[in-house]
C-alpha cells in the first residue's frame, strides 16, 4: 500500500479503487450505462410498434380494445407504488434503518409479484380467446364483433358497435398481438430478473449488509427497478390507451 492510503478504508471498498467516492461514482455510472443499453434493447421493439401501428392503424385500434384497461390500470398503480417503496428502501439504506430497508424491499417484492399475477390473468384471457400469435390465432373477434364478449361489454358501457373488419385488415391484428406479447413479455422477463435480485437483496439486507454506509448496491438496483417501471409507463399508453377515444 502506498502513502496515499493514510486513512483506513471502509471494509466494502474494493482494493483497486483509490477512494470509496471513486468506487461509488464508477458503479453508479456503470449502472446508468447499462440502462442505456436497455433503452436500445427496448428501442428496437418500440420502433417496430410505431411502424406497424402506422401501417395497420384500424387493426391496432380494434385489437387494443381487446385489452382490459382496468387490469392494466391496476398494474400501473402497483408498479408506481413499488417504485415508491423502492425509493423508500434507498432512503432507509442511506439513513441506515435496517428494518425499514427490509420492509421496503419486501413490499417491493410483493407488488412486483402482484403485477406478474395480474399479467398472467391477462395472458390467460388471450390464450382462451385465441389472441396469441401463431397457428392457433383467430380473427373471429374482429370479423364478427357482434358475438365478441369484450366488444359487447364496451357497447354496454356506451361505446358504438364497431363494424366487422375486412378480413385482410383483421388479420393484421396478429401483428398487434405479436408486438403486445414481445413487448410485455420482455418487460415481464425484466420483472422476473428484478424479483430474483430482490430476493437476494432481502436476505443480505436482513444480515445488515447495506446499512453500513455501502448503499450503491441498493441504489443501483433501485435504478434498475425504476427503469423497468418507466418501460411500463410507456407500454401502458401505447398498448392500452392511445387507441381509445
Amino acid at each position: 500500500m502506498s502513502d496515499s492510503h493514510a486513512h483506513a478504508h471502509p471494509p466494502y471498498q474494493r482494493h483497486h479503487f483509490e477512494t470509496y467516492e471513486q468506487q461509488k461514482e464508477a458503479t453508479t455510472f456503470a449502472m446508468w450505462l447499462f440502462l442505456l443499453t436497455e433503452i436500445m434493447f427496448f428501442g428496437g421493439l418500440f420502433t417496430a410498434y410505431l411502424i406497424y401501428r402506422n401501417w395497420y392503424y384500424p387493426a391496432f385500434v380494434a385489437a387494443s380494445h381487446q385489452l382490459d384497461i382496468i387490469l392494466g390500470g391496476i398494474n400501473t398503480l402497483l408498479l408506481i407504488t413499488s417504485s415508491f417503496t423502492m425509493a423508500m428502501g434507498v432512503w432507509c439504506a442511506e439513513t441506515r434503518k435496517k428494518s425499514g430497508l427490509v420492509l421496503s424491499l419486501v413490499l417491493t417484492l410483493i407488488l412486483g409479484i402482484g403485477f406478474l399475477g395480474i399479467k398472467t390473468v391477462e395472458y390467460k384471457e388471450k390464450f382462451e380467446k385465441h389472441h396469441v400469435p401463431g397457428h392457433t390465432f383467430s380473427v373471429q373477434s374482429f370479423i364478427d364483433p357482434a358475438h365478441d364478449e369484450a366488444t359487447l361489454k364496451a357497447v354496454k358501457q356506451g361505446e358504438p358497435m364497431p363494424d366487422p373488419m375486412p378480413l385482410d385488415m383483421a388479420r393484421k391484428t396478429e401483428m398487434y398481438f405479436s408486438l403486445y406479447f414481445a413487448m410485455t413479455g420482455m418487460h415481464a422477463l425484466h420483472m422476473v430478473i428484478g424479483i430474483g435480485i430482490l430476493g437476494f437483496l432481502i436476505v443480505r439486507a436482513q444480515q445488515g449488509a447495506y446499512t453500513t454506509g455501502h448503499v450503491t448496491m441498493i441504489e443501483n438496483f433501485g435504478l434498475y427497478w425504476h427503469f423497468v417501471d418507466i418501460v411500463w409507463i410507456f407500454l401502458f399508453p401505447l398498448l392500452y390507451l392511445i387507441s381509445r377515444h
Binding site: 400469435p133 401463431g134 388479420r171 401483428m175
Partner: peptide
C-alpha cells in the same frame, strides 16, 4: 410464430 418479420402476417 409471432409475425414481426413475417410478410404473410403483415
Amino acid at each position: 410464430g409471432i409475425g414481426v418479420f413475417d410478410p404473410t402476417k403483415g
